[in-house]
Design a binder for these strands. Sequence first.
DNA 1: AAAGCGGGGTG
DNA 2: CACCCAGCTTT
Length: 346
Amino acid sequence: MIFAKRLILWYLENKRDLPWRATKDPYQIWLSEIILQQTRVEQGKPYYFKFLNAFPDIFSLANASEEEVLKLWQGLGYYSRARNLLFTAKYIAFELGGEFPQTHKELIKLKGVGDYTASAIASVCFDEAQAAVDGNVFRVLARIYGIETPTNSSAGIKEFRNLAQNLISRDDPANFNQALIEFGSEQCKPRNPLCSTCTFASECVAFNQNRISQLPVKLKKLKVQKRHFNYLVFLSEKGETVLEQRRGKGIWEGLYQFPLVETTAEASVENLVQEEEFQNYSLETIDGLSLYNDTPIVHKLTHQHIFTKFWIYSCRELPQKGISFEEANKFPVPVLIENFIDTFDF
DNA sequence: AAAGCGGGGTG
DNA sequence: CACCCAGCTTT
């Protein structure tokens, strides 16, 4: 039996009951795919429900504010997804009259939609035979076919995409794509795959050559950068503090945080007060300045470790416009800041 | 082609 | 601790 047929048979027997599998509505499929980019299903699920509840259709999302969307997205990471989500919702609602693009060629033009997501939407919603190649698919194909091309190289991306495109079922591309992904997620797992019950074990190169732990091949990853953040938590007599929005490129773009002084190393109070950024927030005195956490809080991200000190800065009047402590919860903030706000007794 | 972008789960 | 997750965009 051909690969696609066997794969789909496995899928129909083993597929999970996931919320977005009950619909072919492109809005809902698009929403789920954006949420699931580089995100585990179990982590994404509650966000999918939150968004669908808050924004049942493309128009309600299109009419939301960026802060509203970022707040709902808070904690999920890769926040450009949220900004692109809103941008694309506005485009579809107001430029296309709410009509979703229906082909891979058109879908891939949308902000935040790449080859994988365009293929997923085109196949699931419109039965177009475009292979959706995600991390699961790379792994399954690398193992079964014994492909050593790094999956995160340009050559690898091309090779695996071509292979998947040759394997895809013309009759049922929607189930084929979801089956291959589901198979990678549930059977051909990164660690300890279930080879003993695998329907492809007899022809799987990795299994038969005992190379499961060596496939797929990925190019080495960059080393993590260390950064030192000093947050100034102002406390005024009126019960206010200061939050600022992060501007420009970089981590947490568009999210809010306390006034930040970044230093090249862990800072003492003597170091801190000499920083130009600190003096930009200058008060008449530093008598109210005290360190909240003696040991830096280490916030670990994929590509950087952020060593954080929170400095409590009590004052009569704030150096700039403030917000009440209660309001702090309403702004979209990084998890690092959210944890502090939840813990600190204002 | 390579770097940048979050947060959390897993072994 | 390292590795990975229903990847995309920018440089």
